[in-house]
């Protein structure tokens, strides 16, 4: 009985721990999606960046194109210093 509880409880606990760590890591994550308009590709393109609209560093670019916080190309992204 004790072994059975142990064998079921431990994997369930591992599930919960893994979910908890994932949420904690997500809260600390600084990556976000940047949007840019490449005139040679139709539509707004997306790219993963480490930049932020709140940062005060240099403007963030991808292949020479300015990255923005939103698909409407508002709020330019800047490097986090």
């Amino acid at each position: 009985m004790k072994t059975k509880v142990f064998k079921t409880a431990l994997p369930a606990f591992a599930f919960l721990v893994a979910i908890g760590i994932a949420f904690a890591a997500d809260a600390n994550s600084s990556s976000q999606i940047g949007y840019y308009d490449d005139p040679f590709i139709p539509g707004i393109q997306q790219v993963q960046t480490q930049c932020s609209p709140m940062a005060t560093g240099e403007l963030c670019t991808h292949n020479g194109y300015q990255l923005y916080d939103e698909p409407s190309l508002e709020n330019p992204l800047k490097r986090v210093e």
Binding site: A14, A18, F23, A25, I33
Partner: peptide, 21 residues
């Protein structure tokens, strides 16, 4: 179990970034 659940939940929490990547 730890690895798979952690990796899956992390992907689902930031699904849009995962798709872009």
């Amino acid at each position: 179990i730890l690895l798979f659940v952690y990796a899956a939940v992390s992907k689902l929490l930031d699904f849009e970034t995962f798709r872009v990547q």
